[in-house]
């Protein structure tokens, strides 16, 4: 004869296991950087650098000179040219950037704009020296409003800090061509 108490224990145990299975975070949401969200104009303090999002321009096309060649890049979306002010706090280092769009998608720095003068991808930041750099993203237009720039330490920021910087007020119109000069 099975007593009702035993049945109740099994049922409660099963329910508890079910709740634990449903609420346990999965691998992808556990293995993440430590985020800090910053309002417009604030300086973010990461483990090994501090940075500020100082300005943004929108462009239909960008022009720059690389390896002695003049290049013009166009896009079906829009180029977001973000200006950053940063300094390392521990040792000389590079800083990685992505744009988290309004839809939650992550946009990497545009490799079509690799090698631009003062580009973030080639910039080294030194401890105690504040330096400026620009990051160029290629995005669909509706990913800009409501998006944020994510600055991280290096190529892989898992279990390191990530600064989520809200953009400064964005220009209403996009420029037909932006020339990026040294």
């Amino acid at each position: 004869m099975i007593r009702p108490a035993n049945i109740a224990i099994v049922l409660v145990g099963g329910a508890l296991l079910g709740v634990m299975m449903q609420t346990a975070p999965d691998y992808n949401s556990v293995v993440q950087p430590f985020r800090s969200h910053l309002a417009t104009g604030e300086t973010g303090e990461a483990r090994s650098f501090r940075a500020r999002f100082t300005g943004a321009r929108l462009a239909e096309r960008i022009a720059f000179r690389r390896f002695g060649r003049d290049l013009v890049r166009d896009t079906d979306g829009v180029f977001l040219i973000a200006e950053i002010e940063a300094e390392a706090t521990v040792a000389s280092q590079q800083i990685g950037a992505t744009w988290r769009g309004a839809s939650g998608r992550d946009y990497a720095l545009s490799r079509r704009a690799q090698g631009i003068p003062t580009g973030l991808d080639s910039r080294w930041f030194q401890p105690g020296l504040t330096d400026r750099a620009i990051a160029v993203f290629e995005l669909p237009e509706d990913e800009i409003a409501g998006g944020e720039m994510v600055l991280t330490n290096s190529f892989n920021a898992v279990f390191d800090s990530a600064l989520h910087l809200a953009p400064p007020p964005l220009p209403a119109d996009k420029l037909p061509l932006v020339r990026i000069d040294p």
Binding site: T75, D76, G77, S103, R105, Y107, A108, S110, R111, R112, Q114, E138, L139, P140, E143
Partner: peptide, 9 residues
């Protein structure tokens, strides 16, 4: 070199 989401090429 890369392909961005929602931007067909």
């Amino acid at each position: 070199a890369q392909l961005h989401p929602r931007l067909a090429e």
